[in-house]
């Protein structure tokens, strides 16, 4: 089921699309996950610019899929994930970081297993829907690239949350800053919109609000660097490693939105990483055993995103 109505993509000033609240979306995601036929219409949730209107969610569909579950046995980890999703059917805590429980200081990192990524784009969809982004604002973007043997592979590219971030260095007003956990955030009340950070970022991971952002439903708190929704016109935005989620012990949206478990969120201090299908690993051995590398390592940015290549490819060409 598509979450959105048909839009004409790419035309400047396009009308905002109606957005469903995240908890509604969770229900729909749940139902989608239960759909067993991958070729059924609506099973493909790749964000795109087709103009096919989709019907809204119906009660009959829920009952049909529930019956399908009853027929085929559901194994433990998958069930546990459904429980997790259902538990999360509530508005995600936004912005009020002072209310978040204090925990150990993290050093956030991500591991993306390129062997598993199939380019479905659900990570991008989850991120865009939950942050109320326009379709061209792909904070996490999945590139389709060709390796040396001519085979296609997919590479999701979030913000690298560099330890030595060029974007922070060049911001004239200090609107881009780095938290002590290593996440680079943008204070959109300070940003003057000069786009120097976009010039400096070697990963093209920053996205500008060239027009008014789309309307968002009423949110409990004001926008903040930890949850910049709605965004401000004339300022820059980017992937924030979902600090508003992780602060409450939840996974980032892309991590839990990846059905292949290709995206892991991890802590270099705690030396553990977890993906969205319930797998957790010891981060240092996971990286070592799988020969994880970083993108554009030679630039000295010291990114916090590790890639597990698997096809003998160079990253990013």
């Amino acid at each position: 089921m598509r979450l959105t109505e048909a839009v004409a993509c790419g035309t400047p000033g396009w009308r905002a699309r109606p957005v469903r609240a995240p908890w509604e979306q969770r229900i729909v995601q749940l139902e989608e996950a239960l759909t067993l036929d991958p070729t059924a219409p609506g099973a493909d949730t790749m964000a795109g610019c087709d103009n096919v209107p989709r019907p809204p969610v119906s009660r009959r569909r829920v009952l049909q899929t529930a019956a399908a579950i009853g027929v085929t046995a559901v194994v433990g980890p998958l069930a546990e994930r459904f429980v997790q999703l259902a538990d999360a059917a509530e508005p995600h805590p936004v912005a009020d970081m002072s209310a978040a429980p204090a925990g150990p200081t993290r050093r956030w990192a991500m591991v993306i297993d390129l062997r598993r990524c199939d380019g479905c784009g659900q990570c991008t969809d989850a991120c865009q829907a939950n942050h109320y982004l326009r379709p061209e604002q792909t904070w996490l973007k999945v590139y389709e690239l060709t390796d040396a043997s001519g085979n296609t592979y997919f590479m999701p590219r979030p913000c690298m949350q560099c330890e030595n971030p060029p974007c922070v260095r060049v911001c004239p007003v200090g609107a881009s800053f780095q938290t002590d956990e290593g996440v680079v955030l943008v204070d959109q009340t300070k940003c003057i919109g000069c786009r120097m950070c976009m010039a400096a970022c070697p990963y093209e991971a920053r996205y500008f609000n060239w027009a008014d952002p789309q309307p968002v439903p009423r949110l409990p708190t004001a926008p903040s660097p930890e949850f910049p929704a709605p965004q401000q016109k004339g300022t820059v935005g980017k992937c924030i490693f979902c600090v508003h989620q992780t602060r409450y012990g939840k996974l980032p949206f892309c991590v839990e939105g990846c059905p292949m478990g290709a995206i892991y969120i991890g802590d270099l201090n705690e030396d553990v990483a977890a993906n969205g299908v319930g797998e957790s690993v010891r981060l240092s051995t996971f990286l070592k055993d799988n020969d994880a590398i970083r993108f554009k390592e030679e630039l000295g940015t010291r990114p916090r995103v590790y890639y597990i290549a698997g096809h003998g490819q160079d990253l990013g060409y």
Partner: peptide
């Protein structure tokens, strides 16, 4: 710039490495 009314911040909050 996208936010011309904030240009005064270059003086107030100026980041000398920029």
């Amino acid at each position: 710039v996208g936010r011309p009314e904030r240009l005064w911040e270059i003086v107030a909050f100026g980041n000398l490495s920029s």
